[in-house]
Write a protein that binds this DNA or RNA. Structure first.
Lengths: 268, 268
DNA sequence: GATCATGTGGCACCCAGTGCCGCAAATTCC
DNA sequence: GGAATTTGCGGCACTGGGTGCCACATGATC
C-alpha cells in the first residue's frame, strides 16, 4: 500500500557477507547454509536434480521451504555454494598482488583459488561434476560462474597492461580478454580432466604444467621484458624445458639477434 | 516412416527441422516463429524482459500461450531465435572445409557465421545487446550459447590436429581448447565493441583484424611447419609486419639456428 | 523490562513450463 | 469425393521455482 513509514521490513539477504563476520549469528547462518547445501547434494545425488524439489531439500534439513530461499538465491546455488566466496577470494588475490609480479602470473594465481576450492573436497566435486554433465541447467550455471572469473581477470589485465611491456596499444583490450580466457580455459581443462579421473592426483601441479604449455604456445614468455622496438629489436624467452623462443624485428641487426640468443643459451 | 506402432500424440517439438523442409506447413511454421519473436522483442524493448509475460507475447502475436511454447523451448529462446540454426551452419562450415585449410582458419570461418548472424540485423542486435546487459538471465543465456560454439570448435580442432604439425602430444586437448577459446573470445570482443558502437562499421573486417592479432600473439604462425624436435630444432614465423619469431631447442646447433633465421629474413 | 533487529514459518501469489484433451484444418489414402 | 489420419492450435489443469508479506519467537541493546 503506502510506502510512507517503514523501510524496516524491506531487506532480504541484506548485507550478510559484510561486517560483523564473527558474530554468533553469522556462525549459525553459515552452519545452516552448509546444512542445506549438504542436504541438497544428498538428494540430488540419490534421486536426481530435477526430481528433487526445494520442499524436499528444506524438509531434509528440517526447515521450511521459505528458509531455503533465505540462504540461497536459487535451487542451483545450493549445488555451487562456494562460487561467490571464491570470486571474492580471487579478487583479493589480484588486489594483494606484489607490484613486481607479472599480471598474467597474478591471474594464474587467482584462478588457482578456484582450483583449490574444488580440490578441497574431491568427492563432492566429482559427484557435482557428474550432475553438471547430465543436467543442462547446471551445466549452464557453471559456465556462467566461470565467465564471472573470466570477466574479473579481463578487467584486471586491462588495468595492468599499460604499466609494462605493452605500450597501451588499441588492441590491449582484445589481448587482455584473450589472455584471461586462455588462463581460464586451461584451468577448466585441467579441472575437468581431474574430475573425470575421479579427483585423484595433484591438480595444482597439473595446473602449473598447463600454464606452462599455454605460456609457451602463447606469447607471454616475453613477459618480463620491454616491447620489441627499434631500441630493443630482439628478445628471447624460455618456452618449456627444451625450447627457446626469440623475437626480433626484421630490420634488427643480425649480430644483435645473435648476441641475444647466445646470451639466453648461456643462461640455460 | 518405418515404425509401425504409433507415437502419434507423444511428440512435442518432434522433428520439425528435419525432413519435409520445404513444405507449405514448414513455411507457415517459420512465419509464426518470426511473428512471435518479433512480438517478444517489441515487448521486451518497451516494458522490459522480466516484466513481460509469455501470455502477453502470445496475445501480441494473436495466439495462445500454449502455442508460444510449441515454437520456443523457453521465454529466453524467443530473444535468441537464431543460435540453433547458426550452430548448425557453423558445423556445416567445419565439415565442408577444404582439406588443405588449416583447422584454425576453418574455425575462424566457422565463428564468422555467428558474426554474420548478428550483422544481418544490426538494429535488432544492438537492442538485444542492451537487454542482455541489464538482465542477468539473458546474459547467462548468451554465455551458454557461445559456449556451445566453443565446444564445437574444440572438438573439431581436436580431431584435426594430429594430421598436421602436432605429433599428437598429450597436450593437444589443452591446446585445442585454448585455441578454440581464443578464437571465440576474439569474436566476442569484436562483436561487443561493434554493438556498443551501435552496430556501425564493417564488423567482418574488424574480426579479421582481431584474428590477425590473436594469430601473432598466439603461436600459430608456426602452423604450417612440423613440430620443434631434435630433427628440426629451429623454426621461424612472421608475427606482424616488423617482427620475426624464432623457436629453437636449447640444444640446437647455433649455426643451424642462425641459418634458419637468415633464411627467414631473406624471404622478408 | 521495553525496544528493536534478525531469523524463521507459513501463507498467498506470480509465472515459466508441461501434459493432456478436444477441435478444426490440412493432407493422404481409398 | 469422402473417410481416415496427421498436424497445429486453444484451453485447460498442474507442478514447481521464486517472491512478498505478515506473524511470531529469540536474542541483543539501552
Amino acid at each position: 500500500m503506502s510506502q510512507s513509514a517503514k523501510p524496516s521490513r524491506t531487506s532480504t539477504r541484506s548485507d550478510a557477507p559484510v561486517s560483523a563476520a564473527s558474530t554468533k549469528a553469522a556462525a549459525q547462518r553459515l552452519k545452516m547454509r552448509r546444512e542445506l547445501a549438504s542436504a541438497a547434494m544428498e538428494l540430488f545425488a540419490t534421486k536426481g536434480y530435477e526430481a528433487t524439489t526445494v520442499d524436499e531439500i528444506a524438509a531434509a534439513a528440517g526447515v521450511a521451504r521459505r528458509t531455503f530461499f533465505r540462504h540461497f538465491r536459487s535451487k542451483e546455488e545450493a549445488i555451487f555454494p562456494d562460487h561467490d566466496d571464491t570470486l571474492v577470494r580471487a579478487e583479493a588475490v589480484l588486489t594483494a598482488a606484489p607490484p613486481h609480479e607479472h599480471p598474467l602470473d597474478t591471474v594464474c594465481r587467482g584462478i588457482k583459488e578456484v582450483m583449490r576450492m574444488y580440490a578441497a573436497s574431491p568427492a563432492l566435486s566429482v559427484e557435482r561434476y557428474r550432475l553438471t554433465r547430465e543436467v543442462p541447467a547446471l551445466r549452464e550455471r557453471e559456465i556462467a560462474s566461470v565467465a564471472r572469473y573470466e570477466r574479473l581477470f579481463t578487467r584486471y589485465l586491462l588495468g595492468h597492461f599499460d604499466e609494462r611491456e605493452h605500450a597501451g596499444g588499441s588492441d590491449d583490450p582484445l589481448l587482455a580478454e584473450v589472455a584471461a580466457s586462455a588462463v581460464v580455459t586451461a584451468h577448466n581443462h585441467v579441472l575437468r580432466r581431474w574430475l573425470r579421473a575421479g579427483g585423484k592426483g595433484d591438480v595444482e601441479a597439473q595446473l602449473d604444467h598447463a600454464f606452462g604449455i599455454v605460456r609457451s604456445a602463447f606469447g607471454w614468455g616475453f613477459a618480463a621484458g620491454a616491447p620489441i622496438s627499434s631500441e630493443r629489436p630482439a628478445a628471447t624467452a624460455r618456452a618449456g624445458d627444451d625450447v627457446l623462443v626469440a623475437v626480433a624485428r626484421t630490420d634488427a641487426p643480425l649480430n644483435e639477434v645473435m648476441r641475444t640468443i647466445q646470451q639466453a643459451l648461456k643462461e640455460a
